[in-house]
Design a binder for these strands. Structure first.
Lengths: 193, 193, 193, 193
DNA sequence: AATGAATGAGCTTTCATTCAT
DNA sequence: TATGAATGAAAGCTCATTCAT
């Protein structure tokens, strides 16, 4: 049973979609309004200004990461566990592409925005650290492993891949997640044993 | 003894700097001219377009990558060879940060920009492929390795890292090149043996 | 009782006036806005383009010509009929001076403008041809007359006069419509009998 | 034996050609210099400013009209004499198209320019009046004819035609000079007998 | 005498945002 | 609550013209 979208949602959805496709600057308020099927000035009645739209998105997505993380079920095997994390995170990036892209492309213009965006990987890092510490305790990974560096390292790996994928789609540089995970994440995991 | 900069160079330098700081759209021709200390119309006398400025940068950097690549000296050991490549590329990215950032942030909005920017990683890929094919012949790497995919894979790895470094500098997510290369590139290389 | 002008009308009026005085290129959007008493950007909200302004004028005048033409009442005498046409058209040119001048001056530089402007005389030609064909049937004019050429010929005559009048007003070259019609149109008509 | 063109001539020729094709405003100093094969600033060394170029053209053409007029040889028959005048003048307009067009299109913006351009038809009018007065004396034309009005009338006729031809070339409104002269000038002449 | 480099004023157009209804 | 009309600022770019060599 399809819910009727509120005006807020219509605007936010349109914004997110355009953001992903065209970046922040190119996403004009006129285009947003058009895509949302509302008047341009309605947009300003609902959101103080263009920046507010981003803030709203960030907030919305911040809560999603907790949900995503809750979906993780430890298997006891480091390789499959890390691959599961990669899978979850990759899908999260895919789902929230718009925000990640804006984080890369436009956050420079908006220092505040950068602060907000950075919270996503930071939150993931925290989660990873706690998981790895757990795995260390259970002997799943070697006790000599520096958990902090390794977590950062791992995030760099999968986030870097997700980004590159999005940037270089259809250029011959893109490489399927399967291939990438198979080779790199597996290697990475093995190394921790 | 300090060389006097030509107007071309002054403009290009100012452009590159602003590009890095603010992105393509935000880098207005007026600001470029101001930063370069020339009149705005002088800019258009020297470079037909704003786009032309990017083309010029790309061309300039394209030749730099050849120089950088020429500095590579094969050691016969796959691990140290790939690490050497990583080192070279990472430094290249650092040096030409402006272009890589624009490649990520703005090429979406401007298909023409994308075409230009994509040439850089593609060139690196070509170089890598020829190197790996060579290594395959010499038995340095396993003959079952799919050179094309592996090259893309490797670029994703180090380019991804370079990107994340630039984006998340000073956020606790940044991880030194040494650490990253030590762990990931080494793993990667081992796998090819 | 004075009607309040809509913004559209204010802009179009200002445009028409400036066009007549200064030509298309010299009539800048800033000047138009100023003369109309609106902001320059308002102009672009109302008319997509500077070109659109011309299109609008043409359309407006195209309908006027129909009205003018509807006022024609055939007398059965070729001489007075053609003179009536001359009268109607001359007044039409006078009223819509702006467009005719732009047709002459600027359409060269802007092929698109030319296409639009040419519609006016072409429409008149059509009207003339149908009238003459009618007159031919009724025996008012000789059946050997080539209607197409004669129509073009006639338009050249009265349009040419109208142009010269507008260009060379007050130079001693201007000759009243009465005199011109008396001599030339009358001759022309006689010849068709 | 081909004369080497002076820089002055090269510039003036290029200007005249571009003027005819594109009108005054569209004929930029850059294009003129390019077409003349000289540096843009050379142009300003030779001619104080853009307006000066027009003045120069006018002066040059003013002397040509005397030459053209000198070519007239009275036949004693009013019809063929006026047709001869039409022929001469029409060719003159054709040859100096650039100036006539600028006279129509751009003189509005430059009152000074208008003054200059108007001299051409005025001079023709003078010539015509003296010729007609002569014809009147010789009985070639009726002594009741108002020479002043008739001269203006005649100029309107052939100048109007020449203009229309140039404006509406290739639009179905253009009518060959032969046809026009055959019908209108002949009529005109007959009427003077 | 001729050039190449530089300039400031101006162009058309789009932007995010506000106001009155 | 939502709209349509209006706005000032700023964008990329071109113009005629001047200056130093």
């Amino acid at each position: 049973m399809a819910q009727k979208l509120t005006t807020d949602e219509k605007i936010l959805n349109a914004f997110s979609k355009l953001l992903e496709e065209n970046g922040y600057t190119e996403t004009t308020t006129k285009k947003i309004a058009q895509a949302a099927g509302v008047n341009e000035s309605t947009l300003f009645r609902h959101f103080k200004d263009k920046e507010q739209l981003v803030k709203e998105l960030v907030q919305k997505y911040m809560s999603d990461i907790d949900t995503a993380n809750a979906g993780f079920i430890a298997s006891g095997d480091i390789v499959s566990d890390l691959m599961q994390v990669a899978e979850i995170y990759n899908q999260f990036v895919e789902t929230h592409k718009a925000l990640f892209l804006i984080g890369m492309r436009d956050s420079f213009q908006f220092p505040k925005l950068k602060e907000m965006i950075i919270q996503l990987p930071m939150k993931l890092k925290k989660i990873l650290i706690s998981r790895m510490t757990e795995m260390k305790r259970s002997g799943e990974i070697n006790e000599l492993v520096n958990v902090d560096i390794t977590a950062a390292n791992y995030i760099t790996l999968i986030l870097g891949h997700a980004l590159i994928q999005n940037i270089y789609t259809g250029t011959g540089l893109d490489i399927s997640q399967t291939d990438f995970v198979q080779k790199n994440v597996r290697n990475f995991a093995e190394y921790l044993k």
